[in-house]
Amino acid sequence: MLSCKEVTTLHATEGLEHASWRTRMGARLHLLMCKHCRRYVRELARIGAAVRALYAVTDEARDEALLRRVLDSVRDGPSARGGRTWR
């Protein structure tokens, strides 16, 4: 039987990905029975989603300006080797 500590560690480290079938089943069974670990796993998922949402907002005008600047600088800038340019 896996302990709460083992189950939460497997989740936070993503160790389940490489775990044996037995461990994966054990972790799943544990979650069915343990509301604290269920809450823990759910909170991690929420944190991930909240951070993704935080950085999903884009500033299209600025992004476009940056893209143009990057394209201009790589087209015109001398290359590191032999002074070759993009074109």
Binding site: C4, K5, H36, C37, R39
Partner: peptide
């Protein structure tokens, strides 16, 4: 290895 202080938030 059982929770002594179970997780609460952030919710």
């Amino acid at each position: 290895g059982s929770w002594m202080r179970p997780p609460r938030g952030p919710g």
